[in-house]
Design a protein around this nucleic acid. Structure first.
Lengths: 345, 345
DNA sequence: CCATCGATTGACATCGTTGAACTAGCCATG
DNA sequence: CATGGCTAGTTCAACGATGTCAATCGATGG
């Protein structure tokens, strides 16, 4: 790579003048500007961003810390964030934390100082850890949970969404509604799992329905995948409890559950209605198609980047803000029926 | 953030001595080392990687350019690469190209100079563009296609894998085997789509079976998703052609196809056998479970990083290498049957 | 004709770190 | 005792850009 120095020599001007041209500063005559531009083109010069960063202290790289990528929800979120970041002229560095609070903290500690900002989907992070994270780098958390730390937050309406699912099922006449994906594993409260469980209970209460503990199946958040969904459903069936609907706390859990129900000879939704969360692409192509809550990923990405951008430019921004994205319940065959047309495969 | 300078002053030693301690160089007495270590701890100093990069020219950041993340195959690949990179002490920056050759080239041009190396899954890249990419940064392509450029390559056995799938189906007695996912859209040859089509044809030939053109459905590689799989299957059915098996060129295509077949009242595999490629997690939880080719993602990630690391450390490495990962055919219900136990939902 | 002004341009220090070259002290050797 | 070789440490320049401030120049006005 050629440097500004070489460009300057070739154009017969000083280093600083080249810098001026490159940065589009005003005080350069048209003649010199052209000389310099020509030299830049001839040498195929492009400014060394590392040197520039060192000098200016500005960094156009932001981190995105996610528990994992292989869950469709997270890869969709990552894509949305990357697209949005591009609009802000930012590059995104994805970090995987596995949902481990130590890893979440370590990400910020290790990479924070070299990032302009950090977007994190925290799972295990404690208040104190969150404070620590925010010390290293301007941070926006994608979490409904309030933290005692100077961070902004963007969240989906976990509680409201779960409540809406239960209300939807209740309105269709289902009365023994099970939950799949509760997680009491010593984690901070206000995680997605906690909030969705709370919303589920809200919904039952409002519908005047029972909430028998045996209908709540635990699945550790870190294991929200098809395997665990299928296994959790199997456990629920094996308890012998009677139920006619299942609210899974994520679509992949629901898709796993569908599989187990079908293996068990139970028809969806004739015998058991099923709904999930996240509205991933698969929900439209499963068998049957899956009722789900769309968490507004695009909006989350947009708001998160707006907040982060603010904080990056104005470190001492006044208040910490919380933005809750709009959600939407999309009802499909797994609760509504309409399977007749499919033939009895 | 505190700097080495402050650490040096606090420890009462020179800048360089601090640098030595930080980098674990030998010529430091135990006494001074401890003084410096203490000062580092007190000030919570961590070296500024931007300055270090500028000085050493070494960069521990590598790029991973993928068409997209939301396909399970790519997110799984990304996770594998990130895990492997960590073992090498490297950080991964993911870039999305959308499979557009211009974007693939732009990624290298924009980010290449600031990356230690680049791992790319090329889709549209031409020879000349590949040469250009490699000029910007040490590059390893994840592609079976040979490029006239100084790049190493890691590939899966696309052609062999497809051939094995057809052989598998032929051995089970299927004779009219369709293909879903061919892509003749003016792209360079040797893409996954081309190779899998070639393997499919190899398999048919070896089994002594016909290869009627109406059984080959096109789906542009950029659209390999459930939607397109379902639509492609629909088109195939609508042609009225008779077939008893479908080899889809990716699992998501196959999963979409399953949906359409079920809608059409066709039983899998009793009426039509289905198989896919990639062996994504979903293949084990679909209905029915999906026969697929496991492309050896872990091995690909491992080999790719080994090659890249070599090239980063020894820019003028001798020959360009090609490593083809081992594949494995995993037969499941979509070709083998065993659905009886499921009940007739 | 000289002082002043606005518009360009350049010299130099600087960001935080590391590599090269050098020095001070100490011990062993002949 | 002079020499040389080692160790532990220092000083200085450099990586490639940008910010600060001063210098230059032609033109203008008195």
């Amino acid at each position: 790579m050629s440097t500004m120095h070489e460009v300057a020599r070739r154009a017969g001007v000083s280093l600083k003048t080249v810098s001026r041209v490159v940065n589009g500063e005003a005080a350069v005559s048209e003649a010199t500007r052209q000389k310099v531009t020509a030299a830049i083109a001839e040498l195929d010069f492009r400014p060394n961003s590392v040197a520039r960063k060192l000098r200016t202290g500005r960094i156009d790289l932001i981190g995105l810390a996610l528990p994992q990528l292989s869950q469709p929800y997270f890869s969709a979120l990552a894509e949305a964030v990357m697209r949005e970041a591009e609009r802000h002229g930012l590059t995104v560095l994805i970090e995987l934390t596995g949902g481990d609070p130590e890893a979440e903290l370590a990400t910020a500690r290790e990479h924070g100082p070299h990032l302009g900002g950090l977007l994190m989907y925290p799972v295990g992070l404690s208040d104190e850890q969150a404070r620590s994270v925010a010390r290293f780098v301007p941070t926006v958390l994608m979490s409904e949970r309030a933290y005692d730390a100077p961070v902004d937050r963007v969240a989906m309406a976990n509680r409201e969404g779960a409540r809406a699912l239960v209300a939807h099922m209740a309105s269709l006449g289902y009365t023994r509604i099970a939950a799949l994906g509760a997680d009491h594993s010593g984690r901070p409260e206000h995680t997605a799992a906690h909030l969705r469980l709370a919303g589920y209970q809200d919904g039952l209460r409002e519908a005047g329905l029972d909430c028998p503990p045996e209908l709540v199946q635990e699945v550790s958040t870190a294991d929200w995948n098809r395997h665990a969904g299928a296994a959790g459903m199997r456990r629920l069936i094996d308890t012998g409890a009677s139920f006619d609907a299942v609210v899974a706390f994520s679509d992949v859990l629901a898709l796993g559950a569908l599989r187990t129900l079908q293996e068990a000879g139970l028809r969806v939704p004739a015998d058991v209605a099923v709904a999930g969360f996240d509205n991933i692409d698969d929900a439209r192509y499963s068998y049957p198609t899956l009722t789900s809550v769309e968490p507004g990923i695009a909006q989350i990405a947009r708001e998160a980047l707006a907040l982060l951008n603010n904080r990056m430019n104005d470190a001492a921004a006044a208040e910490n803000r919380l933005i809750v994205a709009d959600f939407e319940l999309t009802a499909r065959e797994s609760t509504l029926g309409g399977m007749a047309a499919w033939g009895g495969a």
